[in-house]
Design a protein around this nucleic acid. Sequence first.
DNA 1: GAAGATTGAGTCGTCAATCTTG
DNA 2: CAAGATTGACGACTCAATCTTC
Lengths: 166, 166
Amino acid sequence: MSAERGVVLTWRGLHLADGALRRLLDQRLTSEADCSLLEHDVLTWLAAAPRRRRQMFDLANLVGVTRGGLTRIADRLVQRNWIERDRPETNRREVHAVLTAEGQRAVKRARAVYTRVLAQSLGTHLTAAERDELARITTKLLTALNDGDPLCPPPPTPRTARSPAS
Amino acid sequence: MSAERGVVLTWRGLHLADGALRRLLDQRLTSEADCSLLEHDVLTWLAAAPRRRRQMFDLANLVGVTRGGLTRIADRLVQRNWIERDRPETNRREVHAVLTAEGQRAVKRARAVYTRVLAQSLGTHLTAAERDELARITTKLLTALNDGDPLCPPPPTPRTARSPAS
DNA sequence: GAAGATTGAGTCGTCAATCTTG
DNA sequence: CAAGATTGACGACTCAATCTTC
């Protein structure tokens, strides 16, 4: 197969697989845990953070949306009483999102759906070796794209970030 | 690594890599060919079709949007004079999108950007063997997801469809 | 003035309702 | 009535402008 056709087919596979899995996750999270995939990601980062709290700015980078976008997501989560906003005394410009008790229950439910869906899809349809290869190659690609390409600026490196795997 | 953590990391890699590449393609297509990734896909399917025309319904399935969504995309392409709408005499319920002469030039430009970006990213950052593996694994996954899972209905099989690799 | 968050306007796609043709 | 496309209302994110705090 021509080199050009090769990269196109690779992109197609990558893109379509991501789309299918993303739709699946989003549907299941919506119907079984009342939250979107992005909301799940935010909640998960919060649940894994030191005092179950994080700055808006950091959260935005972690889940890959703009600050404005995160403000809207946070608005929705506040309305559901899953997080609260808190301006720390030390620097009243910052806003921290803090997981509430109710939020902790919500993220537990969401996380269960999330891991179940992944186990039923990636877990059953691919071999362990294939999963590892897929993870390895995509991670390699991601790294190369992020710090190689000026047109795709690396998501302003999250300061703290111990990956809970959003 | 635990099995659960394995699938999560695999999903993260897949999802982030797709996002990075998608953003890159979208930016470059927008700035260098005045069209979005989805618009590029529509134009490409049209360019590869028998008389450079296709039914709206089929196009929607091919690019993976709803019929309503395709109507909006088509509206934009009509405005740019890249496609025209045509209701065939044989069945006046259908609407066909037809590539105009100007549209053929546009798709040529867009396609050049598209393949160039893919060659510069997938082509340089991965080995040929890695590209093949990535294509193979994602395709396998996609197939399994589509015809295995009732929650992710197979995109109503395009009747005709010789893949031009959107 | 710069850092950090929010807001208003805009874009793009979805969903459900509607219009048209068979 | 069913198939096919469009439309209106809406939801979600982006971008640029703005407000607040340092």
